[in-house]
Design a protein around this nucleic acid. Structure first.
Length: 266
DNA sequence: TTCCAGGCGTATC
DNA sequence: GATACGCATGGA
């Protein structure tokens, strides 16, 4: 990673990074494509427009101070992780080699844990455009993604404008468990993967898949391996006997390449 | 009209 | 523990 300041922007040179792959792959739902090579979105209600300058490895973070870049965006975009090295390991497997060639611009975003958890509660048995719609209405209502604290008084009825269907009661339960301290999100980080999953699954509407997505995308647990309908197809088509050895410890990253790859095979 | 979408809770065996 | 079914909503 190299960067320099250009007036009000940060110019970033970064390999193994593509905006479409990373921001429109179903790991985050608040990034909007505003032109061929630019996205607008936010992390913890700090807004950002990011564009790709040369169709390759040069990016512009618009209206961004060096301090915000170093303390917020560098971490959010996981810029200190060497995805080239990760892909070299995964490419020991033939299918993963193809998946990396197809979707090698994905990086795992280090998202906010509450936002990831609640977003993936909304995601269940739902499609990506509608997930974005529901989260968009939520953020419009609050002027940004609401914390659990901000959602303290929400009920199934008060959330009706989201048109989130049966998922509203699950959001209410998540808010309640987080605010009561029954579920401390920060302490999740100290637990083993199994313990963390089981803890998250005490929330109504959080099963194995939503828990794994929350862990992978909200807690950067890259050894979590969410099994959705697409990944189940991946497993039955290519890995009927389980994941290859080279994915050990990187299951979540492998999952992202494979998820994106099989969705292109329609 | 019917089917499906980054699943889960519940009932039943 | 495995399997079947309903669930809100909206686009194809």
């Amino acid at each position: 990673m190299q960067y320099k300041i250009d007036k009000n922007d940060i110019l970033l040179r970064q390999s193994d990074f593509a905006l479409d792959d990373t921001l429109d792959c179903g790991q985050a739902f608040r990034w909007e494509k505003i032109s061929d090579n630019a996205y607008q979105g936010a992390f913890l209600n700090k807004k950002l427009t990011i564009s790709c300058e040369n169709g390759a490895d040069l990016f512009r973070l618009h209206d961004t101070s060096e301090q915000d870049f170093l303390t917020v965006w560098k971490d959010y975009f996981d810029l200190d992780t060497d995805y080239g090295e990760i892909k070299r390991r995964l490419c020991a497997d033939e299918t993963l080699s193809k998946a990396c060639a197809y979707a090698g611009g994905i990086r795992i975003l280090r998202q906010d844990s509450w936002e990831a958890l609640s977003s993936f509660i909304i995601s269940q048995n739902n499609n990506i455009p509608r997930i974005k719609g529901i989260i968009g209405r939520l953020c419009e209502h609050y002027g940004g993604y609401p914390s659990a604290e901000q959602m303290r008084d929400e009920t199934v009825d008060s959330l009706g404008y989201l048109r989130s269907g049966f998922r509203a009661k699950y959001l209410v339960d998540a808010v309640s468990k987080v605010l009561s301290g029954e579920l401390e999100l920060e302490s999740i980080r100290t637990l083993s993967l199994d313990e963390a999953r089981n803890k998250l699954m005490t929330i109504k509407g959080v099963g194995p898949k939503v828990a794994d997505c929350a862990l992978l995308f909200g807690f950067y647990r890259i050894d979590a391996f969410p099994k959705d309908v697409w990944v189940k197809r991946v497993l039955s088509q290519w890995y009927p006997h389980g994941l290859p050895e080279c994915t050990k410890g990187l299951e979540g990253i492998a999952q992202q390449y494979l998820f994106h790859y099989i969705r292109s095979q329609k």
